[in-house]
Every structure is written in C-alpha cells, then in structure tokens.
Simulated assay, not measured.
Amino acid sequence: MPGCRRLLARLIGAAALLAGLVSPPLAAVERLPKLVLAGPAAAVSTPLIHMIESGALQDVAERIEFHTWKDPDQLRVLALGGKADFIAMPTNVAANLYNRGVSLKLLNVSTWGVLWMVSRDKEAKTLADFRGKEIAMPFRADMPDIVFGLLAEKQGLDAKKDFKLRYVGSPLDAMQLLVTRRVDHALLAEPAVSMALRKTKSFPVSIIAPDLYRSTDLQQEWGRLFKRETRIPQAGIAVIGQALADEKLQARVMAAYEQSLLWCQKNMLKCGEMVAKRIDLLTPEAVADSLAVSQTRHVAAAAARPELEFFFGQLYARNPALVGGKLPDDGFYGLGKAP
C-alpha cells in the first residue's frame, strides 16, 4: 500500500539519520607502558612518592617508577637524557635548562619555604650572626647556596669572604656532619632539618638543653630584606621529553600531585612512612615534622610567574648564568593562565 510504503521510508530515513548523529562508543584510553617520576630527598618529592604508593596514577601507566637524584649533576643527566617524564627540581635549574635548549616546561611551584640554618648556637638569629663561622653548605652554586648568597649580599655581606662555607653533596650530607659534630652550623632543606633535630633529640623542645637549634628561617630573611612575602618559589615539577606533547597527561599528573600534597598535609605520619620506605636516612617521624613546618602549596607555574620572575631577576642580577643568561619566556610556563 502506498501509505505503508511512505511510512516505512520515513522510518528508514529516521533510522539512518539517527545512526549518523549517534557516535560509536569512545575507545578506552590506552595506558602508557611506563611513567617515570624523579626528585630529590626533599619536600618537593613527598607527593610524588605518595602518588606511587597510593596508586593514584594506576589508570595512567602500567608501571610507575620513582628515581631519586642526589645532586644537581644527577638531575641534569636525567633531564638531558630524557630519562624521566616528570622531574621535581629547583626552579632556577628548570629555568637554566630551558634557556640552554632543553625541552621542558615548569608545571607548578610547590616548595615555598623549607630552608633553615641549623646551629648549636641558640643566640644566632640572622645570617649576620654566622659571620666568620664554618657552615656546611649543600649544592654549591645551586639552591640553597644561591639563596644564601643573595640574602648575605642584601645585608652587605660577602658569602665567600665573611663565612667559611664547607660545601657538601646534599642536605642529608650536611645533616650528617651536624649530627656527628664535625660542624656546628649548616644550611639545610626540609626534611633534613627535622631529621637532624630528631637524631640529636632536639625536637621540638628538650627537657635538657638541645644539641641543635632551628635557627635562621631563610624565608623570613627573604621577606625582611626584600620587603616581600616570607616565601620563595624554590622548587616544583617540570615535564620533559615525550610527556611534553600530552597536556591531558600533564593536567592529570598535576591534579594527582595536588591531591597527594593535601593528603600528606592531613596524614603526616602515614605519609612519612611512605617516604621513609623509599629514601634512606629519613624516618617517618622526621618527615611528619617537616610537613608540619614547611611552606608547601601547589601553585600552577603560570600563576606563580610574578614571584618566579622576581626571584629569577635577583639571580640574573647577581650572575646571569644562574638562569641560563636570560629570563625564561612564555614557553617555560606550562598549564594554566597567568593572573
């Protein structure tokens, strides 16, 4: 019948139209065979370790590894060789590598305040109080040595002439010198500060006179001398190698990093247990102590740009080579928009 044929044609046409409008199911995102995270034995790495231990990225990669770099030379080998996808590093090192042609972006700044002088002298309050004294100093010509130099110069001191700097490989090496009484003063980064105080039973206060004191807070010195907030954009996470091309992966890793940082701040001892399993010389209690006193907050690199550029500007004025000869351009700042 003509009416039935017309109705059937309409139904077939509608079915065809519907088939054209409805897309086939999206294929599941294929997991990476391996994802490599890297960082130092410092506060910036704590969320990375929690991310692995908690399985936060199990949907992203079949295998996730964490590699510890012990000094800036090892860090540069990792970066130049493309041996990691996401690396926790000092912000000035990231700028230096970028300006020297290494393909990377800084994704965030999470370490804003972990540098302290630790001393046997309870009267020492400012860097000037350490004039003429021997100080164990980790990472020559890198963070924290360059921050010490900046702050010394800002108050009319010459870091090379007015102090006896004893350079060592890492904050944990400086801590060992302190606890074995081979030096009386050291510039340390958390959690090495808390570890030194724990090892000498100097935390948080002792019934008897403590052996060591948490002395000058370099962040407070920064705020006092530069008339700024008492925080320094010291370290964050950089993306490198093939992961540079995958912004969705970067966003996923940064979201996990932020959540892990918040979890660690709320569950300090449990987080400390995870970290101590992967980093020798650290104890869960010392990591928990460090989480309680450190200034750590996830800030996208683009949002942190004004503070980064002020910091880099100070380094450039002192020695342009510290940031690779110039301030990094827009391509250095990954994810997000500047305020």
Score class of each variant (00 low, 15 high):
P25G: 06
T230Y: 09
L150F: 01
L106R: 10
M1F: 05
L8K: 13
R231K: 15
R228I: 00
R231I: 11
L188F: 03
V114P: 11
S215Q: 08
N99K: 06
A321W: 00
K277C: 00
E285M: 08
P306C: 03
G3K: 12
E65S: 14
V239I: 11
R31V: 01
H185P: 07
G3S: 12
S260K: 11
R166T: 13
P339L: 01
V114T: 15
S45T: 14
V193N: 10
K154C: 05
Y167F: 14
P47L: 01
V193H: 08
G132E: 08
T200K: 13
L37P: 10
M1N: 13
Q58Y: 02
S54M: 08
E30R: 15
L57Q: 13
L8W: 07
S103W: 00
L115K: 09
T180L: 12
V193F: 04
R181A: 11
Q74H: 11
A304L: 02
L8V: 12
E190W: 04
P24N: 07
G82N: 13
Y98T: 11
Y333S: 10
E221G: 08
L32G: 08
L157F: 02
V323N: 06
V239H: 05
E309D: 14
G241Q: 05
F148V: 12
I64G: 10
A304R: 08
A15G: 13
Q250G: 09
L11H: 09
R131D: 01
A38R: 06
W222N: 05
F332Q: 10
S54Q: 14
D73L: 11
A286S: 15
S170F: 01
G336R: 07
K266V: 00
A301H: 03
R198K: 13
G82A: 02
P284K: 01
A189S: 15
V102W: 03
L225M: 04
R76N: 13
